[in-house]
Write a protein that binds this DNA or RNA. Structure first.
Lengths: 206, 206
DNA sequence: TGACTAAGTTTAACGTTGTTAAATTAACAC
DNA sequence: GTGTTAATTTAACAACGTTAAACTTAGTCA
């Protein structure tokens, strides 16, 4: 058996290099600008070599999106004040998430853009989204159990997620109707939308 | 001066034909599938003729989007029970809008998709969006004036819009986390999110 | 050592796209 | 008809995604 196959590490490295190059190019010049040929040129390899590492362009972007989700999930976990009560935690996490979206609009667009191959085709993407969602649902459930939050945890979380998602999406797409910046909107949003869902009086320690 | 320029009507007609063909193709095969060349082939014209009617592909899609917005705005105006009080009207309009998004996900994607040329480049799109938004703000303002709704009308409307938009976006992108259908979510959504903003007790006549 | 073999990589090629420039067609004034 | 000019088509270029064939390379084994 001559010439051993590339080691897993080599494959992983090249995939990583392609992902990073794609991510940078995407942030710099947008989705359309990212082509295998440009990535290959940038990495100094043949324009068809990427096909040895990703089936096609969609698969490459799925990997880039997975990286985005991982960073997103890390930001959520890292910004979770676990020592606080569930309602205060949810408020804090809402701020973390909204801030993350504001500071990384390109990431947010990539994670949640429409006009993309159906998510159902990428189980690993579904899984990590589900993980992020479940992480939050678990906290809501604690609030429900403690009598601080009314309703079924998953439904409540869905509502809150949709509300936050709407705001972030409008922001990331530059579609906020004039007259408000995100900064002006985040606090009212938390009070008006997240607030009623999670209990109007957060035990916050500002 | 030989051979008169195309009449305004002729130009409008051809633009309309191109828009309609693009819209149908978009709905049938998605955004990427819509090319000038395919549209031209479908209309039996040369593949460069569309450039005489639209500067480029983005401009064509801006026109298609404008049509979408107009239908959307008509649905809102047509579904507005103007004889009712402001809170009941807003509830009804929220249902109209959510239903419209559910029944026309492709339209919704087109109107609000990220990964599109910045809206700021298309003043007519901004204008019609603003018109739709202002239409709703005016009703909220009536509620505020009548003491039925608390807060500044534009801000309240922004919140409600973001909430509804989040739900619709997730639906249109097929990104609703498992376990809920839109039908199951719309009523809780209205109660949980729109409700507190517009006054928890709508004067509804179901 | 050197031929064999299969993985890794590149080159060639096809069909498609957006877009521009040149060539052609068509309609009206004279 | 002839000339002029808008309308349209044809030709062309560069870039893209993708597949197939050619080539390179690094091991095994005689």
């Amino acid at each position: 058996m001559p010439r051993p196959a590339r080691s897993d590490q080599q494959i992983k490295d090249m995939r990583q290099r392609l992902c990073e190059a794609a991510y940078e190019l995407y942030k710099a010049e947008g989705y359309e600008a990212v082509s295998f040929r440009r990535l290959a040129a940038h990495l100094g390899i043949s324009h068809t070599l990427p096909y040895s590492y990703f089936d096609n362009r969609d698969e490459l972007f799925a990997a880039v999106r997975l990286d985005c989700y991982q960073r997103f999930l890390m930001a959520i976990r890292g910004g979770d004040p676990t020592q606080l009560g569930p309602v205060a935690r949810l408020y804090a996490l809402a701020r973390v998430i909204l801030n993350y979206a504001m500071e990384n609009p390109a990431d947010y667009r990539l994670m949640f853009a429409m006009h993309q191959p159906p998510l159902a085709r990428y189980p690993e993407l579904l899984a990590i989204r589900q993980a992020a969602f479940d992480y939050l649902v678990a906290i809501v459930q604690q609030g429900v159990d403690a009598g601080l939050i009314k309703g079924e945890a998953r439904t409540v979380m869905h509502m809150a997620w949709a509300a936050a998602h709407g705001l972030m999406t409008l922001h990331a797409a530059g579609q906020l109707v004039h007259g408000h910046t995100m900064d002006e909107l985040i606090e009212p949003m938390l009070q008006a939308i997240i607030g009623p869902l999670f209990g109007n009086e957060p035990e916050h320690q500002s």
